[in-house]
């Protein structure tokens, strides 16, 4: 054994069998695969068309980044009352805020496009995200989705995975959806899972909180804050994989979860 130990970047923590299994699970959901459904829901053409409508019709009041009206950030999916796509369509077509936002008469493809552009986080080359019902999303978060078995919200739940109490102001809808559909693509590098074996032969699993050349800090499986001097370790392994697999929930369910996560705005 050499000291300090080499840090191993594990290409995949999954056994070939487990990997095949998870692929099968994904395939089993077939047409409900979220990525596919989202791509079909709004096309790239719709998003690009929407960006032109936005610049012409909306940007005067909402600003090029969508944040110039108090309490609203269109790019980040923050609205005063609207939640679903139907809500947005209603506000655009019917006006809002006692007439301060006028009613817009848009052709269906224009209306569809501007909603797509908003849902794509103002990224014309992006993917539009469907935002569903927050109440159903909360039930999924705590139930079938099993999110609450690792994530903490407003003081409830384990601390081992990142606390999501304010995730709605930290992440765009697109990133929230991706964190479920393609977690490996959205896992922040600092949050990588680690396995440490100390010279005292203690094995510690945890989530990395901080690291430098000589030390590493993490929260372990017992929710304890731990700090290690690397020279005192027998091994330090860092996983390149997220802890959870791509979700097997349906597209509608993911949309509901995104809707719920966007309501998590931290302590005001």
């Amino acid at each position: 054994m050499t000291y300090p130990p080499q840090k191993h970047r594990l290409q995949s923590l999954l056994s070939p069998r487990l990997w095949r299994l998870s692929c099968l699970l994904l395939l089993a959901t077939g047409g409900q695969s979220v990525a596919q459904e989202s791509d079909h829901q709004y096309t790239s053409e719709a998003i690009q068309a929407g960006s032109r409508v936005y610049v012409q019709q909306c940007a005067l009041c909402h600003g090029p980044q969508g944040e110039t009206v108090d309490g609203i950030n269109l790019r980040l999916g923050q609205f005063r009352t609207a939640r679903t796509d139907d809500d947005l369509a209603g506000v655009i077509s019917g006006g809002a805020a006692g007439g301060r936002m006028p009613a817009f008469t848009l052709r269906p493809e224009e209306l569809n496009g501007v909603i797509a552009y908003i849902r794509a986080g103002f990224d014309p080359s992006g993917v539009a995200i469907s935002i569903g019902d927050a109440t159903r999303g909360k039930a999924l978060f705590e139930g079938k989705g099993e999110c609450a078995s690792c994530h903490r919200v407003n003081g409830k739940g384990p601390r081992t995975a990142p606390d999501l109490s304010d995730i709605g102001v930290l992440r765009t809808p697109a990133i929230l959806q991706n964190s479920m559909v393609a977690p490996a693509a959205t896992l922040l590098p600092i949050n990588r899972a680690v396995r440490i074996v100390t010279r005292r032969e203690e094995t510690v699993f945890g989530r990395r909180l901080n690291e430098d050349t000589y030390t590493v800090q993490l929260i372990d499986a017992n929710e304890q804050l731990r700090s290690f001097v690397k020279a005192d370790l027998v091994s330090y392994e860092l996983s390149s994989e997220p802890v959870h697999q791509p979700t097997t929930l349906s597209g509608d369910e993911v949309a509901d979860l995104v809707g719920y996560l966007l309501t998590l705005r931290g302590m005001q």
């Binding site: 923590l13 999954l14 487990l18 078995s149 690792c150 739940g157 384990p158 081992t160 995975a161 899972a193 396995r195 699993f205 989530r207 499986a221 017992n222 929710e223 392994e237 996983s239 994989e241 802890v243 959870h244």
Partner: peptide
């Protein structure tokens, strides 16, 4: 084992 432990971090507490 590593993966399983991490997957069940919450339950282990």
């Amino acid at each position: 084992h590593f993966l399983i432990v991490l997957l069940s971090l919450g339950g282990l507490i």
